[in-house]
């Protein structure tokens, strides 16, 4: 794969890549690099977006992500904006996630991985959810499938919890990794606590193979302290901003922390991870720390999935 510094609109050479090794004045550093970012529009680093819903995005977005230095991404199954009516609807969706999306990503040198499930928003139909869970194993051995996700809670109901537990059962039986969605806004704290109760109540789970996503200031510590991975989602309005994500890295350290855009069909920004990279640089953090969060950590977590085959950029 060619370097992101030599493709498309990104014309800066490797020698121009900002390598911040010490603490520098933000204004002076940014003034010096401003022309780089405006002219090149590049992050100057390879990164992986561990949570993004590319079926909702255009091919132009793949191109933009590639220019920004994105070399891989993972796409959890989620809600389409309407409730699907049958198990065959999900089968078609999983077909798209495991065949066409990897192909579309490959046109821009991006490696595409995926997670399969029925989303919590559709879990009120328990009968349909059970049919989907029974069908998922048809796809688990396909290339690029990393595990079960994004399962979780939405409004923290009994049916959602029932379907969540049945997904966990499937993951345990098939030895799959798990990616978990935590609820929105006022439901997040309650739902995260409920999810952690269910996870920690199951002694069969390897906590190092479970990612609890969409953490914020009031939930990140709970997740990390229990030994799980935690994902921070960068959204324009809800969830987390790049600045608050950088705060959490500073407060908790980079261990088991991931940053994602969760770009989808709603208000979201597929290039949010580069915004986080820029914020970390503006604060004077070393490149090694940034790379740890946006590249090394996803590789470490994904690397525990039997379906993960990654070709590093050269």
């Amino acid at each position: 794969m060619p370097s992101p510094f030599s493709r498309g609109a990104c014309s800066a050479s490797a020698a121009q890549v900002p390598l911040v090794s010490g603490r520098v004045g933000v204004a002076s550093w940014f003034a010096g690099q401003r022309s780089f970012f405006i002219a090149g529009n590049c992050t100057g680093v390879y990164y992986i977006d561990p949570h993004i819903h590319m079926v909702s995005r255009t091919t132009d977005d793949y191109e933009t992500l590639a220019k920004m230095g994105c070399v891989a991404l993972s796409e959890p199954a989620f809600w389409a904006g309407y409730d699907r009516g049958s198990v065959d609807g999900f089968r078609d969706y999983f077909e798209q996630l495991t065949t066409f999306e990897p192909k579309r990503a490959s046109w821009y040198g991006i490696q595409h991985f995926t997670w399969l499930c029925i989303n919590a928003k559709e879990a009120e139909n328990v009968a349909l959810a059970r049919d989907v869970i029974a069908m998922i194993p048809e796809f688990l051995d396909r290339p690029g499938v990393l595990g079960i996700g994004e399962i979780g809670l939405n409004k923290n109901t009994r049916n959602e919890a029932t379907v969540f537990l049945e997904h966990i059962e499937l993951a345990v039986k098939t030895n799959e990794q798990i990616l978990i969605h935590t609820p929105h806004l006022e439901d997040k704290y309650q739902g995260t606590r409920m999810i952690l109760d269910m996870l920690t109540g199951d002694g069969r789970l390897d906590r190092n193979r479970v990612l609890v996503d969409h953490v914020e200031e009031h939930t990140v510590g709970l997740v990390l302290e229990q030994g799980f991975w935690a994902g921070m989602t960068l959204y324009p309005v809800s969830k987390c901003t790049p600045q608050r994500a950088a705060d959490m890295v500073e407060m908790y350290g980079p261990e088991r922390l991931l940053v994602n855009s969760a770009g989808d069909w709603g208000p979201s920004k597929p290039t949010a991870v580069p915004d986080f990279i820029l914020e970390m640089r503006k604060r004077g953090h070393p490149e090694s720390l940034i790379k740890r969060v946006v590249y090394d950590n996803p590789l470490t977590f994904f690397g525990q999935s039997r379906g993960f085959r990654f070709n590093p950029p050269v």
Partner: peptide, 25 residues
């Protein structure tokens, strides 16, 4: 300290640690 976390909790629903009993799960 932790103003952001405390404000998040202010805007959060309460957590009931007996929820599994209530849901019979």
């Amino acid at each position: 300290p932790s103003r952001a976390a405390r404000i998040q909790l202010l805007f959060s629903r309460d957590y009931d640690e007996d929820w599994r009993t209530r849901f019979e799960l």
